[in-house]
């Protein structure tokens, strides 16, 4: 009964539905970058010393560095942060508030083509 990514995304869709998100502005992206540096970069930054990046590389996900992705949706990002995946644990709201998580999502989707940001 291993949690697969596909299963996870199905569950996620049910949990979150499709959310409309106000277009992120510069300061929100900046805030997102800041929160990302603190909570995500130590696992998802570039380099072989980053466990999340290593895991994604082993999985064949390209690019393996999260910040370089342009296919992530805010709903998926939030789902992973609040549900965890493999050895990535959940993050509580005292660690990353909903507003901070919105900002992370804005940051990680900043280079998406408009269609992917739903």
């Amino acid at each position: 009964m291993t949690i697969s990514r596909a299963l996870f995304l199905v569950a996620l869709g049910m949990a979150l539905g499709t959310q409309a998100l106000a277009a992120p502005n510069e300061s929100q992206i900046e805030r997102g970058h800041h929160v990302y540096q603190k909570w995500c970069y130590p696992c998802h930054g570039p380099g072989t010393d980053k466990p999340g990046t290593n895991a994604m590389a082993a999985q064949g996900l390209k690019p393996a560095v999260l910040e370089e992705r342009t296919d992530l949706t805010p709903a998926a990002i939030k789902g992973y942060v609040r549900h965890g995946i493999y050895f990535m644990p959940t993050f509580r709201k005292t660690e990353i508030s909903d507003a901070d998580l919105d900002a992370i999502a804005a940051y990680l989707t900043r280079s998406n083509k408009p269609a992917a940001t739903k």
Partner: peptide, 25 residues
């Protein structure tokens, strides 16, 4: 420095310990 922890610098590098498919331990 791949693992700076013994030099007093915090890191999360250790989480690679169970391999990429680890679900925790």
């Amino acid at each position: 420095i791949a693992n700076p922890v013994p030099l007093g610098v915090p890191s999360l590098t250790t989480f690679s310990i169970g391999g990429p498919r680890s679900q925790g331990h």
